[in-house]
């Protein structure tokens, strides 16, 4: 297999707060190949966004990479001078955010904002850049792109803004687009359109997509590969089929069981009992053990290693380990 586009290699990120050190991500390893869609799944605060931000080199000042590294086309990204990262950002790596309304500058027109990376990274003349910006807006499916380019963010709807945001991030044909919960702030029909658009663009531009989400429906529809995170660690990762058909880790099983199934009218959806442990003092053993129905004595004695479960599918769980090697 050829070299992946992005490799996370045992990345650990710590956030230093007054109350202590928060281990926001620990030993996160996975890779993204060119043109592939990888979904990063997990509940709020499990380290999804922190992992994505460290990929962009945009960690908040209190956070730092404690160990491990991220490689882009084989070259390490972490610890690179800011100028190198800045050239990569926008050019090779792009990102769209959760709330398109706040991700666009309210006092600049849409066109003015799309033009900037074009002038900066592609060295286009302002006029040519404007033409390209209008073309980009057209490409993301906005009607009357020339008018849209001249309008201000407050004049557009959330869905239109997210499209504009996508146009902006696509401006320099990035190799990887990070979408941090791109549809959370949008209503259901619009979010389906946006996801469709992302999928179409991904195919036509052959870019990789790192999709951060907690919507498993979106994952099933979009992703090739799924990475499930829990309390800062990757608990299970694998091709989307394997994860959905044969989830191994109890947490993944719990997540999938908690999905509403159309047609099935249940009084209550199944849920995972208990609470996420406080990230300030995570246990020294499997952090899911306290909530796990299948937990055994061993689960409270150390961190589980990854067990390989077939092609690219692996899981960090003692129970799975036992079952596989029994």
């Amino acid at each position: 297999m050829n070299q992946p586009l992005i490799e996370f290699d045992r990345l650990s990120v710590e956030i230093h707060t007054k109350a202590g050190i928060v281990r926001a991500a620990q030993d996160v390893s996975f890779s993204i190949s060119a043109g592939q869609t990888v979904a990063l799944v997990g509940e709020s605060g499990c380290g999804k966004s922190i992992s994505a931000l460290s990929l962009m080199g945009l960690l908040p000042s209190a956070a730092r990479v404690a160990s491990g590294e991220i490689r882009y086309q084989g070259a390490p990204l972490t610890g690179q001078p800011r100028e190198t990262l800045r050239r990569l950002r926008g050019n090779d790596l792009a990102m769209i955010f959760q709330e398109p309304m706040s991700a666009l500058n309210p006092v600049l027109t849409i066109g003015e904002q799309i033009v900037e990376p074009l002038i900066k990274h592609q060295r286009l003349r302002p006029k040519a850049a404007w033409v390209k910006a209008v073309a980009l807006l057209d490409k993301v499916g906005l009607a009357r792109p020339d008018k849209i380019a001249e309008s201000y963010p407050h004049e557009l709807s959330g869905g239109m803004l997210q499209r504009a945001m996508i146009a902006m991030s696509m401006s320099c044909q990035p190799k990887l687009l990070i979408a941090d919960e791109p549809t959370t702030a949008l209503d259901v029909t619009i979010s389906a359109q946006i996801l469709d658009l992302l999928q179409t663009l991904q195919k036509s531009e052959q870019m990789a997509l790192l999709l951060i989400t907690h919507d498993l429906g979106v994952v099933a529809q979009m992703a090739d590969f799924v990475v499930v995170m829990y309390a800062g660690r990757v608990v299970e990762s694998g091709p989307v089929r394997a994860i959905f058909k044969h989830p191994q880790h109890p947490y993944t099983q719990g997540l999938l069981a908690a999905r509403p199934v159309p047609g099935a009218r249940l009084a209550r959806l199944p849920s995972i009992r208990g609470q996420v442990p406080n990230p300030m003092n995570l246990p020294e053993y499997c952090s899911f053990a306290e909530r796990c129905d299948q937990a055994q004595a061993q689960c409270r004695q150390g961190q589980p290693e990854y067990v390989s479960l077939g092609a690219m599918h692996q899981s960090a769980c003692f129970v799975v380990q036992k079952r596989e090697f029994a």
Binding site: L58, R89, G90, Q98, S102, A103, E116, P117, K120, H121
Partner: peptide
């Protein structure tokens, strides 16, 4: 977020 976006755009 829009300032983060400008940084993302490099």
């Amino acid at each position: 977020d829009f300032m983060l976006a400008t940084e993302v755009l490099g």
